[in-house]
Amino acid sequence: MDFTGKNVLIAGGAGFIGTNLALALAGRGARLRLTVHDKPLQAAIPGAEVISADLRRPEDCARAVQGMDLVFLCAAHTSGAAVIRATPLVHVTPNVLINTLMLEAAHRAGVGRFCFVSSGAAYPPTGDRPVAEDEMFDGDPHEVYFAAGWMKRYAEILCRTYAEKIARPLPCVVVRPSNVYGPYDKFDFAVSHVTAALVRRVVERQSPLEVWGTGEDIRDLIYVDDFIEGLLAAVAAEQPYLAVNICAGQGHSVKQILQTILKVDGYDRADVRYDPSRPSTIPVRLMDNSLAREQLGFEARTPLEEGLRRTLAWYRNKRLRIPLPR
């Protein structure tokens, strides 16, 4: 798809995915509108229109989507494992409002295409086997993600309804990410995911270096630049409705991730201590990348070591400006 001159809304322009998507689309000549709510943009986006909006309000959603050719819904209320376990409904009410109202506003405004960023956490557990797209509704999400997973599933059903079940349909793309990491991620321990938390602990040279859980949990990690390429490939597909995994297609344990970060950053004498009593999520989450490879021609290309090297460099230089210890 040629994005040159396209009117594109990125809802959630100050977030991790939204920031990286805005940078990518600005480089492709799109005319961008970005929504912000409770925090400012993380990066300068040349030529972008920035509007303050509370997407839990229908009037703000209507204002945001007006005149847009393409809408990316990246806005969401997110948090880490501890918060999810303590307050399972924390993701539900605000996100149901955002997702529902944004779809309705986009449909009413005659938007050409709508992209919803879902989550691999909405899938039912499949043990050591990578989960494929057609298995989304084969069982409940993992107990830890029960509420948040069904919230995402509800939004996916809404996307399919708008795309296939009504007059004047709104073409919709649902992208299901694995664990995305990279620059502009959340590094606050209260809300960060495992990779960002480990990067911060290593850069700060924490000693002891505490890791929540046993370190045996396995995740599919995809570097954010790869994820954005997959996202844009999905949006460029011709189907009126598409739901697709955008993932690396391989798993790494938390221990392997940490060992790679330590190696890349030269932290040879780290006193690593795993704490099984602290909250983690599910033991194994793997995702199948066959559909994206076969239908979109997309494969993640950034090796884990290279992606972590870039993330470490960005976090140190852009956020903390902490010099590498000698």
Rank of each mutant, 00 (worst) to 15 (best):
D2M: 00
F3P: 00
V8D: 14
L9I: 04
A11S: 14
G12D: 13
G15M: 13
R28H: 04
R28I: 07
V36Q: 01
P40I: 08
A44N: 13
A48K: 07
I51M: 09
D54P: 06
D54K: 08
P58D: 12
E59M: 14
D60T: 05
V65C: 06
F72H: 09
L89A: 09
T93Y: 07
N95M: 01
N95L: 04
V96G: 06
V96N: 09
R113V: 01
F114V: 02
C115K: 02
S118D: 10
S119E: 07
S119I: 11
P125W: 03
D128E: 14
D128Y: 12
D134W: 07
D134Y: 03
F137Y: 13
F137T: 13
D140Y: 12
H142W: 06
C159R: 06
Y162I: 02
E164S: 05
I166N: 14
R168A: 15
L170M: 10
P177T: 01
Y181P: 05
D185R: 11
H193V: 10
A196Y: 00
A196T: 01
R200Q: 08
E210T: 15
D220L: 12
V224A: 02
D226L: 08
E229R: 15
A237I: 00
A243F: 03
A243Q: 09
V244A: 05
A248D: 01
V254F: 04
V254H: 00
K263R: 10
V264Q: 00
V264P: 00
D265A: 07
Y267L: 06
D268G: 13
R269G: 11
S277F: 05
L286H: 04
L286E: 02
L291K: 13
Q295S: 15
G297K: 08
G297A: 09
T302I: 04
L304D: 02
L308A: 11
Y315C: 00
L320Y: 06
I322D: 10
